[in-house]
Protein backbone atom coordinates (compact mmCIF):
# COMPACT_ATOMS: atom_id res chain seq x y z
CA UNK A 1 0.00 0.00 0.00
CA UNK A 2 2.72 2.40 1.11
CA UNK A 3 4.82 1.61 -1.93
CA UNK A 4 1.95 2.20 -4.29
CA UNK A 5 1.26 5.62 -2.77
CA UNK A 6 4.92 6.55 -3.17
CA UNK A 7 4.88 5.49 -6.81
CA UNK A 8 1.78 7.55 -7.53
CA UNK A 9 3.28 10.47 -5.73
CA UNK A 10 6.49 10.15 -7.71
CA UNK A 11 4.62 9.91 -11.00
CA UNK A 12 2.52 12.95 -10.14
CA UNK A 13 5.63 14.92 -9.15
CA UNK A 14 7.43 13.99 -12.37
CA UNK A 15 4.38 14.94 -14.43
CA UNK A 16 4.06 18.22 -12.57
CA UNK A 17 7.74 19.04 -13.00
CA UNK A 18 7.59 18.11 -16.69
CA UNK A 19 4.55 20.32 -17.13
CA UNK A 20 6.22 23.23 -15.35
CA UNK A 21 9.39 22.67 -17.36
CA UNK A 22 7.49 22.68 -20.64
CA UNK A 23 5.54 25.76 -19.62
CA UNK A 24 8.73 27.57 -18.67
CA UNK A 25 10.31 26.51 -21.98
CA UNK A 26 7.36 27.89 -23.97
CA UNK A 27 7.36 31.10 -21.93
CA UNK A 28 11.07 31.45 -22.55
CA UNK A 29 10.60 30.93 -26.30
CA UNK A 30 7.77 33.45 -26.39
CA UNK A 31 9.89 35.98 -24.52
CA UNK A 32 12.75 35.36 -26.95
CA UNK A 33 10.41 35.84 -29.90
CA UNK A 34 9.40 39.24 -28.61
CA UNK A 35 12.83 40.26 -27.33
CA UNK A 36 14.89 39.31 -30.42
CA UNK A 37 15.66 42.11 -32.89
CA UNK A 38 13.48 41.37 -35.92
CA UNK A 39 16.37 41.19 -38.38
CA UNK A 40 17.97 38.45 -36.30
CA UNK A 41 14.91 36.22 -36.09
CA UNK A 42 15.85 34.45 -39.31
CA UNK A 43 18.58 32.68 -37.38
CA UNK A 44 16.05 31.13 -35.01
CA UNK A 45 13.80 28.69 -36.92
CA UNK A 46 12.00 27.44 -33.76
CA UNK A 47 10.92 31.00 -33.02
CA UNK A 48 9.72 31.48 -36.59
CA UNK A 49 7.72 28.26 -36.44
CA UNK A 50 6.18 29.21 -33.12
CA UNK A 51 5.28 32.67 -34.39
CA UNK A 52 3.61 31.27 -37.50
CA UNK A 53 1.64 28.79 -35.39
CA UNK A 54 0.46 31.53 -33.04
CA UNK A 55 -0.34 33.96 -35.84
CA UNK A 56 -2.59 31.85 -38.07
CA UNK A 57 -5.66 31.94 -35.80
CA UNK A 58 -4.96 35.57 -34.97
CA UNK A 59 -4.87 36.48 -38.65
CA UNK A 60 -8.13 34.63 -39.25
CA UNK A 61 -9.77 36.46 -36.37
CA UNK A 62 -8.47 40.00 -36.83
CA UNK A 63 -7.08 40.50 -40.34
CA UNK A 64 -8.85 38.17 -42.75
CA UNK A 65 -12.04 40.23 -42.80
CA UNK A 66 -10.26 42.91 -44.84
CA UNK A 67 -7.19 41.20 -46.30
CA UNK A 68 -8.88 37.91 -47.16
CA UNK A 69 -8.45 34.44 -45.72
CA UNK A 70 -5.65 33.73 -48.21
CA UNK A 71 -3.92 37.12 -47.62
CA UNK A 72 -4.84 38.10 -51.16
CA UNK A 73 -6.33 41.47 -50.23
CA UNK A 74 -9.59 43.05 -51.31
CA UNK A 75 -9.55 45.61 -54.10
CA UNK A 76 -13.07 46.77 -53.32
CA UNK A 77 -11.81 48.41 -50.14
CA UNK A 78 -8.18 48.84 -51.12
CA UNK A 79 -6.92 46.28 -48.61
CA UNK A 80 -3.57 45.26 -50.08
CA UNK A 81 -2.39 41.78 -50.89
CA UNK A 82 -0.20 40.61 -48.00
CA UNK A 83 1.12 37.53 -49.75
CA UNK A 84 3.33 39.39 -52.21
CA UNK A 85 6.63 41.06 -51.29
CA UNK A 86 5.32 44.54 -52.16
CA UNK A 87 4.71 46.65 -49.07
CA UNK A 88 3.26 50.14 -49.10
CA UNK A 89 4.95 51.33 -45.92
CA UNK A 90 8.51 50.62 -44.95
CA UNK A 91 10.86 48.05 -46.43
CA UNK A 92 8.70 44.98 -45.82
CA UNK A 93 10.96 43.77 -43.02
CA UNK A 94 9.51 42.17 -39.91
CA UNK A 95 10.20 45.36 -37.98
CA UNK A 96 8.40 47.55 -40.51
CA UNK A 97 5.40 45.20 -40.68
CA UNK A 98 5.27 45.09 -36.90
CA UNK A 99 5.27 48.88 -36.73
CA UNK A 100 2.33 49.08 -39.13
CA UNK A 101 0.36 46.50 -37.13
CA UNK A 102 1.13 48.28 -33.86
CA UNK A 103 0.09 51.76 -34.89
CA UNK A 104 -1.97 51.32 -38.07
CA UNK A 105 -2.48 53.43 -41.18
CA UNK A 106 -4.52 56.63 -40.78
CA UNK A 107 -5.71 55.00 -37.59
CA UNK A 108 -5.72 58.13 -35.48
CA UNK A 109 -2.86 56.80 -33.40
CA UNK A 110 -0.20 59.53 -33.23
CA UNK A 111 2.50 57.03 -34.17
CA UNK A 112 0.53 55.59 -37.08
CA UNK A 113 1.21 56.15 -40.78
CA UNK A 114 -0.79 59.36 -40.99
CA UNK A 115 1.34 61.31 -43.45
CA UNK A 116 -0.92 61.80 -46.42
CA UNK A 117 -3.89 60.68 -48.51
CA UNK A 118 -4.14 60.17 -52.22
CA UNK A 119 -5.71 63.57 -53.04
CA UNK A 120 -8.96 63.88 -54.96
CA UNK A 121 -7.44 65.57 -58.01
CA UNK A 122 -10.78 65.82 -59.81
CA UNK A 123 -12.98 66.84 -56.93
CA UNK A 124 -10.55 69.55 -55.88
CA UNK A 125 -10.24 70.73 -59.51
CA UNK A 126 -6.50 70.16 -59.47
CA UNK A 127 -7.03 68.35 -62.77
CA UNK A 128 -9.87 68.64 -65.28
CA UNK A 129 -11.74 65.60 -66.54
CA UNK A 130 -9.69 65.61 -69.77
CA UNK A 131 -6.45 65.91 -67.86
CA UNK A 132 -7.44 63.00 -65.62
CA UNK A 133 -7.99 60.88 -68.74
CA UNK A 134 -4.50 61.83 -69.93
CA UNK A 135 -2.94 60.87 -66.61
CA UNK A 136 -4.87 57.59 -66.68
CA UNK A 137 -3.38 56.86 -70.12
CA UNK A 138 0.07 57.67 -68.77
CA UNK A 139 -0.38 55.23 -65.87
CA UNK A 140 -1.72 52.61 -68.31
CA UNK A 141 1.42 53.14 -70.38
CA UNK A 142 3.62 52.79 -67.30
CA UNK A 143 1.97 49.48 -66.51
CA UNK A 144 2.26 48.30 -70.14
CA UNK A 145 -1.48 48.21 -70.78
CA UNK A 146 -3.26 49.36 -73.94
CA UNK A 147 -3.31 53.15 -74.04
CA UNK A 148 -3.54 56.23 -76.26
CA UNK A 149 0.04 57.29 -76.96
CA UNK A 150 -0.68 61.00 -77.46
CA UNK A 151 -2.83 61.16 -74.31
CA UNK A 152 -0.13 59.30 -72.35
CA UNK A 153 2.43 61.86 -73.47
CA UNK A 154 0.21 64.68 -72.25
CA UNK A 155 -0.40 62.72 -69.06
CA UNK A 156 3.33 62.36 -68.50
CA UNK A 157 3.68 66.14 -68.45
CA UNK A 158 0.75 66.47 -66.04
CA UNK A 159 2.29 63.79 -63.82
CA UNK A 160 5.35 65.98 -63.31
CA UNK A 161 3.60 69.35 -63.44
CA UNK A 162 -0.01 70.29 -62.62
CA UNK A 163 -0.95 66.94 -61.13
CA UNK A 164 2.08 66.94 -58.85
CA UNK A 165 1.84 63.12 -58.86
CA UNK A 166 5.61 62.64 -58.85
CA UNK A 167 5.78 64.27 -55.42
CA UNK A 168 4.44 61.12 -53.76
CA UNK A 169 4.78 58.43 -56.42
CA UNK A 170 8.40 59.49 -57.19
CA UNK A 171 9.92 60.62 -60.46
CA UNK A 172 10.37 57.02 -61.62
CA UNK A 173 6.81 56.13 -60.50
CA UNK A 174 8.25 53.55 -58.13
CA UNK A 175 6.29 54.92 -55.18
CA UNK A 176 7.53 56.06 -51.80
CA UNK A 177 7.36 53.81 -48.72
CA UNK A 178 7.56 56.85 -46.43
CA UNK A 179 4.19 58.07 -47.70
CA UNK A 180 2.70 54.68 -48.48
CA UNK A 181 2.33 55.72 -52.10
CA UNK A 182 2.40 52.68 -54.37
CA UNK A 183 4.50 52.05 -57.46
CA UNK A 184 2.52 52.55 -60.66
CA UNK A 185 4.31 50.03 -62.83
CA UNK A 186 1.56 47.46 -62.68
CA UNK A 187 3.17 44.83 -60.53
CA UNK A 188 0.41 45.13 -57.96
CA UNK A 189 -2.64 47.36 -57.49
CA UNK A 190 -4.48 48.14 -54.29
CA UNK A 191 -7.73 49.21 -55.92
CA UNK A 192 -7.19 47.96 -59.45
CA UNK A 193 -5.26 49.07 -62.51
CA UNK A 194 -8.00 49.20 -65.13
CA UNK A 195 -9.02 52.51 -66.73
CA UNK A 196 -12.22 52.88 -64.73
CA UNK A 197 -10.58 52.27 -61.34
CA UNK A 198 -7.60 54.49 -62.12
CA UNK A 199 -9.97 57.29 -63.16
CA UNK A 200 -11.89 56.87 -59.89
CA UNK A 201 -8.65 56.88 -57.85
CA UNK A 202 -7.43 60.09 -59.43
CA UNK A 203 -10.80 61.84 -59.43
CA UNK A 204 -11.93 61.03 -55.88
CA UNK A 205 -8.68 60.14 -54.13
CA UNK A 206 -8.08 57.21 -51.79
CA UNK A 207 -7.66 56.90 -48.06
CA UNK A 208 -7.34 53.30 -46.96
CA UNK A 209 -7.28 52.55 -43.25
CA UNK A 210 -5.74 49.96 -40.99
CA UNK A 211 -6.47 50.06 -37.26
CA UNK A 212 -3.78 50.34 -34.60
CA UNK A 213 -3.60 47.02 -32.78
CA UNK A 214 -1.34 48.07 -29.92
CA UNK A 215 -4.16 48.20 -27.39
CA UNK A 216 -6.01 45.16 -28.73
CA UNK A 217 -3.30 42.54 -29.14
CA UNK A 218 -0.34 41.60 -26.93
CA UNK A 219 3.27 42.28 -28.00
CA UNK A 220 3.67 38.53 -28.56
CA UNK A 221 0.62 38.39 -30.81
CA UNK A 222 1.73 41.41 -32.82
CA UNK A 223 5.26 40.09 -33.26
CA UNK A 224 3.86 36.71 -34.31
CA UNK A 225 1.62 38.32 -36.92
CA UNK A 226 4.54 40.37 -38.25
CA UNK A 227 6.69 37.26 -38.59
CA UNK A 228 3.83 35.34 -40.22
CA UNK A 229 3.19 38.06 -42.79
CA UNK A 230 6.89 38.35 -43.52
CA UNK A 231 7.19 34.58 -44.02
CA UNK A 232 4.15 34.48 -46.30
CA UNK A 233 5.24 37.48 -48.36
CA UNK A 234 8.89 36.48 -48.69
CA UNK A 235 8.83 32.79 -49.65
CA UNK A 236 12.33 33.11 -51.11
CA UNK A 237 13.72 34.10 -47.74
CA UNK A 238 13.57 30.39 -46.95
CA UNK A 239 12.08 30.75 -43.50
CA UNK A 240 10.33 27.63 -42.21
CA UNK A 241 6.57 28.01 -42.31
CA UNK A 242 5.55 25.09 -40.11
Amino acid sequence: MRRRVWLWGLAATVALLAGIGYWLHVRSLQASLVREWPAELAGHPPLIRMAVGLARPLYAEHCAACHGANLGGNRAIGAPNLADPVWLYGDGSIGAIENTILYGIRSGHPKGHNVTDMPAEGRTHQLSATEIEDVVDFVLALSRQPHDQAAAERGRKLFYDTGNCFDCHAGDAMGNPDYGSPALLGETWNYGGDRLTLRQSIYSGRHGLCPAWIFKLTPLQIRSLAVYLYVESHPRAGLARQ
Binding site: I77, G108, H109, P110, C210, P211
Partner: peptide, 15 residues
Protein backbone atom coordinates in the same frame (compact mmCIF):
# COMPACT_ATOMS: atom_id res chain seq x y z
CA UNK B 1 -5.79 66.63 -29.17
CA UNK B 2 -4.28 63.34 -28.07
CA UNK B 3 -7.36 62.30 -26.10
CA UNK B 4 -9.65 63.20 -28.99
CA UNK B 5 -7.53 61.17 -31.38
CA UNK B 6 -7.52 58.27 -28.99
CA UNK B 7 -11.28 58.17 -28.55
CA UNK B 8 -11.93 58.52 -32.26
CA UNK B 9 -9.37 55.96 -33.38
CA UNK B 10 -11.96 53.24 -33.83
CA UNK B 11 -14.25 55.54 -35.78
CA UNK B 12 -11.38 56.52 -38.03
CA UNK B 13 -10.59 52.91 -38.69
CA UNK B 14 -14.14 51.86 -39.48
CA UNK B 15 -15.15 51.85 -43.13
Amino acid sequence: AGVQLEVTADVLAQQ
